[in-house]
Design a protein around this nucleic acid. Structure first.
Lengths: 169, 169
DNA sequence: CTTGGAATGTCAACAAGGCTGACTTATCCT
DNA sequence: AGGATAAGTCAGCCTTGTTGACATTCCAAG
């Protein structure tokens, strides 16, 4: 199970990045970095009546306008009831609107209103600013590696969806 | 605010990794990867009466045995009341023990019991296995970049603490 | 054309894990 | 002696996740 690397294992120095020690550092880095990653949007949202769940919904609606509820559910990985609570407040506050599907009238296509786009912009500006600073500080080579490891960390199913999503322009 | 990169900006091709488009991909990768990162421990914890908060506490107590409560609070970035709820269940279930500080008797030094170490091992084995697979798939160069970007993403204060923590063996 | 299944929405209840605020106890230090 | 610090605790609130049950609307296949 543990599959601990010993420093005397075959392969020698080139595999030292796979020691439990190095893995632990990576795990902790991931934990602290994610805190930084969400800190700015969280701060902004804290002043309003919204939370991280609203941010995620708004982000992915902005990202693919006209997406259906079911699709959003698959992306966010939460239950319909959870998402619905969030969507309802976004409807009520006029940030998101749902249009009945043209082809299949059971479906709802989700769109941001102008007000919704304004919030999205505020949140993503903050998050991008931090990301940009980190990218710039680390350089293109590091960013390339960053992206590679993140993709390898995803669940295979999620990774396929991600790659499909990101390649589609 | 937006500081959007235009493709005609100075610097040319070498800065294309800083476009809003690339940043958005990084942001989404971070979101999906974090889900993978926590998926295995979450699955294990779901079967017990514990959650992610317990995992974090157990991890950092294991990582620096004898740490004080206040120190743990600073690392985890939660309130005393939040941590206390978690610690109490860990005490009650005999996974963690608190010894009165030798120097300063107000302090409590936290340690895992054998039972606590067993849980920690189970959780970190699962998490490390995924991390190891990702590292191996990505290669040492990519891992180097991954770590660099993650550190750059942390809050400066957190980054200092992290670097102090990780350098101290 | 009817019927089964799919997409959506909704009600209710519950749990984890954050938070604030107020307060106690024990200990340390000046 | 008295203020500051470390820890613990009680009470209450919020967000965001969960299950389960059920209604509506619509598509599609028999």
């Amino acid at each position: 199970m543990a599959e601990t690397m010993s420093s005397t294992s075959l392969g020698g120095e080139s595999l030292l990045y796979l020691t439990d020690e190095q893995l632990r550092k990576g795990i902790e880095a991931m934990f602290f970095a994610y805190r930084g990653f969400t800190a700015d949007p969280d701060r902004i949202l804290g002043d309003m009546d919204y939370g991280r769940a609203h941010h995620r919904a708004v982000h992915f609606i902005h990202r693919s306008p006209g997406n259906t509820v079911g699709n959003l559910l698959a992306i966010l990985g939460v239950t319909k009831q959870s998402l619905n609570r969030v969507l309802r407040t976004l409807f009520d506050d006029g940030l998101v609107e749902a249009r009945v599907g043209k082809k299949d009238k059971r479906e709802r296509n989700l769109y941001l209103t102008e007000k919704g786009r304004a919030l999205e912009r505020e949140l993503s500006d903050a998050q991008r600013a931090r990301m940009r600073a980190a990218y710039r500080a680390a350089g293109p080579q590091a960013v390339q590696g960053f992206r590679t490891v993140l993709e390898a960390m995803m669940d295979p199913k999620m990774r396929r969806q991600f790659q499909r999503m990101e390649s589609g322009q």
